[in-house]
Structure formats: structure tokens, C-alpha cells
């Protein structure tokens, strides 16, 4: 009994603050949220305002940097004509298949390398060489081997996405708390169950960091790949627009790319939160 009395306050201390702090009134909360939201978009609004006014005031050449409203106009025309959807679809299909393949290959491989020393010894030097080879430097090789079509583009995305996932998965497995391994050993857990019940769940947060990094990489690399020999895709749109001097369309493509990047990252962050809710 005494023990419980001792223990309860300790929990109260460690309870997350949202339980303890009294909730403010509804209007107050709305006002707070508004202030926060304004703060968050302020910098972006300033950027857009500068973008809009600078060309109009003649501070920069409006031909090379058209005002933001012109770009929006071009974006809208691309969107209504269906071309934007086509290009976005083409890009997303490549990016997601490359990314998905990389997750499917790199996570199991990373687990193997992280856990089995012989595998690490065998593959270590090879990984070191490839890891330090810039993905885009291999693009010409892939084009030669796989042709100029979809395969080489998906392959380059997959290649580039593999590294952050692989390296994070390896360090996730190696970083599993040794006390937990001792615990598992003391209850005679071995082989598959050790992996399933201890190593895998312990590795999830670090693996997810790698997956999130790979998400960003998948879009970065894709756009570059699409600038070489593609007939659709956002990278192609940007590059082709520049060639044809359709500058507003070029910017429209760039904006779309960054919007996709932001959304993709947010999706991955949300997924990560879901899987690691046990962390503080």
C-alpha cells in the first residue's frame, strides 16, 4: 500500500503536459490557432509577395522571372488541359515504384547485414564503393543497359533511395539496446522470435528515418532523370518549357514538384508517428 502512495505522484509528474494544463476556452483556442497558422505561412506569403512585385517593379527581368500571378495562370491552364495530371501521374508512378522497390529490397537486406556479421564482411566493401558513387553518375550506364524508357528511370530512383534506407536499417539493428538482447537471451528467445519480438520493433524508428530521407531523394533524383530523354513527367515539363521559352510553365512545374515533395514528406511523417507512438 505504502508503495502505491509513493508511486502515484511520480506518474503524475511524468504525465504529458496536455493532461495537466487546463484547456483554454474555445474562442481563445481559435485565436491561438490562428496566430500559429499565420506565423507558419508568413514567410511563404512574404516570398510570394516579393515574387509578385519584384518583376512588376522591374527589379528583375519579368521574362525570366514572371510575376507569381502569371505562373499561377500558367499552372491553371496546364491543370485544366490535363497535361499537368499526365505529367504528375507519370512522375509519381516512377517515383513511387522506385521508392517502393527500394523499401522492399533495402529493409530486409539491411536487417541481414546488420545482424549477420559474415554478410556484413562480405558486402561491406561493395556497399562502400557504390554508396560513394553519385546516383546520377550512373544514369548514363543505366540508360545504356536498360534503355531510355521507364526501366532506367525507375532503376535510378530505386538505386538512390536504397542507400538512406539500407544504411539506417543497418545502424538500427546494430543499435538495439544490448540490455534488451540480454533480456531476450535470459528468457531463451532465439532466432526468428528474437528478430520478430525484439530487433524488428526496436529498429522501426531508425528505419523510418531512412525511409523518410529516401522519400525526399526519390523526387530529387527523378526530376533529374526525367530531364534526360523523357516524353512525360514533371522533370520533362520543366526542361521542355525552358527549351521552348515557356517560362511561366517552367515555374508551374517547379511549384508542382515542391508541393509533391512536401505532401510526400508529410505522409511519411504521419506514418512514422503512427508506428512509433510509444516514443516520448
Amino acid at each position: 500500500m505504502t508503495a502505491l502512495v509513493e508511486a502515484r505522484p511520480a506518474v503524475d509528474e511524468e504525465r504529458p503536459s496536455r493532461d495537466r494544463v487546463k484547456r483554454p476556452s474555445a474562442p481563445r483556442r481559435v485565436a491561438d490557432a490562428l496566430v500559429t497558422a499565420t506565423g507558419k505561412v508568413a514567410a511563404i506569403l512574404v516570398l510570394l509577395a516579393v515574387w509578385e512585385t519584384a518583376p512588376r517593379l522591374g527589379l528583375v527581368d519579368a521574362t525570366f522571372l514572371p510575376p507569381f500571378s502569371t505562373v499561377v495562370d500558367a499552372w491553371w491552364r496546364l491543370a485544366t488541359s490535363g497535361q499537368l495530371a499526365d505529367d504528375t501521374g507519370a512522375s509519381l508512378a516512377r517515383s513511387l515504384s522506385g521508392f517502393g522497390l527500394a523499401v522492399a529490397v533495402a529493409v530486409p537486406l539491411g536487417l541481414l547485414i546488420g545482424w549477420y556479421k559474415p554478410v556484413a564482411t562480405l558486402l561491406g566493401p561493395l556497399l562502400e564503393v557504390f554508396r560513394n558513387t553519385a546516383a546520377l553518375a550512373l544514369l548514363p550506364v543505366l540508360v545504356l543497359l536498360l534503355g531510355i524508357g521507364e526501366t532506367s528511370k525507375i532503376a535510378i530512383v530505386c538505386y538512390a533511395c536504397t542507400w538512406p534506407i539500407l544504411l539506417n536499417t543497418i545502424s538500427a539493428v546494430r543499435g538495439v539496446d544490448p540490455t534488451l538482447l540480454r533480456l531476450a537471451k535470459s528468457v531463451d528467445l532465439s532466432g526468428f522470435r528474437l528478430f520478430q519480438k525484439v530487433i524488428l520493433p526496436a529498429a522501426v524508428p531508425t528505419v523510418f528515418t531512412g525511409i523518410r530521407l529516401a522519400g525526399a531523394v526519390s523526387i530529387l533524383v527523378l526530376v533529374a532523370a526525367e530531364m534526360v530523354g523523357a516524353k512525360a513527367g514533371l522533370g520533362y515539363l520543366i526542361n521542355a518549357s525552358q527549351f521552348n521559352f515557356a517560362i511561366p510553365r517552367m515555374y508551374a512545374g517547379i511549384i508542382t514538384i515542391s508541393a509533391i515533395g512536401v505532401v510526400f514528406n508529410q505522409v511519411l511523417v504521419a506514418l512514422e508517428r503512427r508506428f512509433t507512438s510509444w516514443r516520448v
Binding site: 539496446d177 540490455t179 534488451l180 540480454r182 533480456l183 537471451k185 535470459s186 528468457v187 531463451d188 525484439v198 520493433p201 526496436a202 522501426v204 512509433t276 510509444w278 516514443r279
Partner: peptide, 18 residues
Amino acid sequence: GPGLDRGVVFQQYALLPW
């Protein structure tokens, strides 16, 4: 070898955080 006829309690608790 290890076995479930002996239970070990570690100094660092060794709880699975998830």
C-alpha cells in the same frame, strides 16, 4: 544455458519501450 526456470531482473529494467 539460459532457461525459464530462472528469471533475471536487470539493473536497467530492460523493458521493451514499445
